[in-house]
C-alpha cells in the first residue's frame, strides 16, 4: 500500500503525449482467445463476401442458368441449382449481401431509437421515463414475432417495411437495457461531481455516461444483431420476409426444402450459413464481455 509514488521529478517543460487508440486496440487483440479469433475471421469473411458478391459470384443473382430445377452438384454449379434452375452457390453469396445488409440496417435503426430514448429516460427520469417505460412494457406484452406478423399483414412485406417494423419492435429491448445500464451510471458519484462542477447535459451525456455504457451496448449490439438476423431469416423462411427474386438465406431454405425429404442437405447450407455467423458473433461478444468486465476491476 505504500506504493504511492512520492518522489516528484523536477518540473518538466513538456508533458508526454498520450498513447494512441490503435496501439491500445492492437495490444488487446493480441491477447484474444482462439474462439474470438475464429469468430472475427468468420465475420471478416462474411463482410468480404457481402461487399464483393457481384464480383466473386460465377453467375447473376437471379439468372436462370439451367433448364432443369434441382440439379445436383457439379463443376459448373458447385452446389447445384434451385427450384427455378438458378445457381445455388451464386445465390448463397448474394444472400450474404442481402440478409446481412438488411439485418445490420435494422439493428442500427433499433439502437438509434431504443438507445437514444433509453438514455434520455435515465437522465430526465420523472414522467418522461414513466411514459416511455410504460409504452415499452405494453409493446413487449405481445410476443415479438407475433407483433411482426400483425404489422406485416397490414403493411405488406417490403424490405423497407421489414426494416422499420423489426427495428421498432426490437428497439424496446434496446431501450430497456440502455435505460437500466445508464441508470446505474447516472447514480454514480462522478456524475454527481460533474453536476456539482456545473457541467451541462451534453457533457454529462457524452463524457460521463456514454463511455461507461458503451462496452455493454457494443456487446448488446452483437447479440441484438444475431436476434434480428434470426428473426428476419425466420420471417423469410415463412415467406413473409424478404421477397423473391432477391436471394436470401431464409427463403432459400423454404424454396428448396423438398430436397431434404430426399436426403439432400444442400438446402441446409443457407441455414448453416446463418448459424455459423450467429455462432461467430456470439464467440466475439463472449470474449468482449469477458474482456470489458475484467477491465473494470483490474488492479
Amino acid at each position: 500500500m505504500s506504493v504511492d509514488q512520492t518522489a516528484p521529478r523536477s518540473a518538466p517543460r513538456t508533458v508526454k503525449a498520450r498513447r494512441t487508440v490503435m496501439q491500445n486496440v492492437w495490444r488487446t487483440l493480441r491477447k484474444a482467445p482462439l474462439s474470438a479469433w475464429f469468430g472475427m475471421i468468420v465475420i471478416a469473411i462474411y463482410i468480404f463476401v457481402a461487399f464483393f458478391a457481384p464480383w466473386i459470384a460465377p453467375y447473376g443473382e437471379s439468372e436462370v442458368v439451367s433448364q432443369q430445377p434441382f440439379e445436383v452438384w457439379s463443376w459448373a454449379h458447385w452446389l447445384g441449382t434451385d427450384q427455378l434452375g438458378r445457381d445455388m452457390f451464386t445465390r448463397l453469396l448474394f444472400g450474404a449481401r442481402n440478409t446481412l445488409g438488411i439485418a445490420l440496417a435494422t439493428t442500427l435503426l433499433a439502437f438509434a431509437i431504443g438507445g437514444g430514448l433509453g438514455i434520455i429516460a435515465s437522465i430526465f427520469r420523472g414522467w418522461v421515463d414513466q411514459l416511455l417505460s410504460r409504452a415499452v412494457d405494453t409493446l413487449m406484452a405481445i410476443p415479438q414475432l407475433i407483433f411482426a406478423l400483425i404489422l406485416l399483414s397490414i403493411f405488406g412485406s417490403s424490405v423497407k417495411n421489414l426494416i422499420i417494423i423489426i427495428a421498432v419492435l426490437d428497439s424496446t429491448r434496446v431501450f430497456r437495457l440502455a435505460r437500466s445500464v445508464a441508470m446505474n451510471v447516472v447514480v454514480m458519484d462522478y456524475v454527481e461531481a460533474a453536476k456539482l462542477r456545473g457541467e451541462g447535459l451534453v457533457w454529462i451525456l457524452f463524457k460521463e455516461v456514454l463511455p461507461n455504457i458503451m462496452p455493454t451496448m457494443v456487446a448488446e449490439f452483437g447479440l441484438r444483431f444475431c436476434f434480428v438476423f434470426l428473426t428476419i431469416s425466420s420471417l423469410s423462411f415463412l415467406g413473409l420476409g424478404i421477397q423473391p427474386p432477391t436471394a436470401d438465406w431464409g427463403s432459400m431454405v423454404r424454396e428448396n426444402a423438398t430436397l431434404i425429404t430426399y436426403g439432400d442437405f444442400t438446402p441446409l447450407m443457407p441455414a448453416g450459413a446463418i448459424a455459423l455467423l450467429t455462432v461467430a458473433v456470439n464467440f466475439v461478444v463472449d470474449w468482449f464481455l469477458h474482456k470489458t468486465s475484467g477491465l473494470r476491476d483490474e488492479k
Binding site: 431454405v253 441455414a271 455462432v279 456470439n282 463472449d286
Partner: peptide, 18 residues
Amino acid sequence: TLTTISFPEFFVAYILML
C-alpha cells in the same frame, strides 16, 4: 446450448428431419 441458441429454429428442425 450456446450453439443451439445461435441456430435458427428451422435449421434445427431440418437437421433432425434429415
